[in-house]
């Protein structure tokens, strides 16, 4: 299914997360923070709610991803571009699409690896009570898809600029906008100059809404569709940008 080149790039990129300190730094920060905020003493805290589900865990996933996923994606293309290795990569018999896909899948797999590393929280709820494992599974799937969507956006901005900082900031801002697309303050702001119909359109892009239904254990084809379209569209954008740079 996956072409040989995609696999090769995927493997190399994935390996680079474990041979450079960056991957470890990311993982350690992510795993520590998600554990910390889940148990953080507040009203939504895991140990205060005393429900053997992962709602207090999944609630923070979008926000941690919002900061950490762009940090993963920012280097994807910006670094290649800056160091010039992109010239190496794209003069090998590899299409832009394969390269985009390989890099994206590698970083997505890395996000997946990090999610897998949160398994102690599943053990914790299993020890404390009787959780609904299917709901947890769907929650994880939702988180994985959300991570993929953020990454795809990050890929796009990483291809757009040589500068990793700019890529990071753009990604965070855009992901934030899409995440909060359904939130009243943003809608209120937009309603000052957008027609109601466009507002609805915009609201339907809200990532957190799609993510939350999955977190509750419902797998809607609509949600899967949403994430699939978002991921593919932004990756296509990324490919278009790289092609564009080639032509100019």
């Amino acid at each position: 299914m996956m072409s040989h080149s995609v696999k090769t790039i995927l493997k190399k990129e994935l390996k680079s997360y474990f041979t450079t300190p960056l991957g470890y730094v990311f993982s350690i920060i992510f795993l520590f923070s998600i554990g910390y905020v889940t148990f953080e003493s507040g009203r939504g805290s895991f140990f205060v709610l005393r429900q053997a589900d992962l709602s207090s865990f999944f609630r923070y996933i979008p926000w941690l991803f919002l900061l950490l996923v762009p940090a993963v994606s920012m280097r994807l293309w910006a670094e290649e571009r800056k160091s010039g290795t992109i010239e190496l990569l794209l003069t090998l018999p590899v299409t832009v699409r394969e390269a985009v896909l390989g890099k994206f899948l590698a970083s997505w797999a890395f996000i997946g690896f990090n999610l897998l590393c949160t398994f102690p929280i599943v053990l914790t709820v299993a020890y404390l009570g009787q959780p609904d494992y299917l709901v947890i599974l769907i929650g994880y799937l939702g988180s994985f898809l959300l991570g993929g969507a953020y990454l795809a956006i990050g890929c796009f901005f990483s291809a757009l600029t040589k500068n990793q900082v700019i890529s990071f900031i753009c990604t965070v801002v855009f992901c934030y906008l899409l995440t909060m697309a359904g939130s009243p303050p943003i809608l209120e702001f937009l309603s000052t100059f957008l027609h109601r119909y466009f507002l609805d359109l915009f609201e339907s892009l809200s990532m957190i809404h799609h993510f939350e239904t999955m977190g509750r254990g419902v797998m809607r084809v609509g949600d899967l569709w949403f994430f699939a379209v978002i991921i593919l569209a932004w990756l296509y954008g990324c490919e278009a940008i790289l092609d564009e740079k080639k032509a100019s």
Binding site: K12, S16, T19, T20, S83, G84, T85, E87, L88, T91
Partner: peptide, 10 residues
Amino acid sequence: PENAPLYDDM
């Protein structure tokens, strides 16, 4: 390529 760009971490 010019300046021989390489993947430094490999």
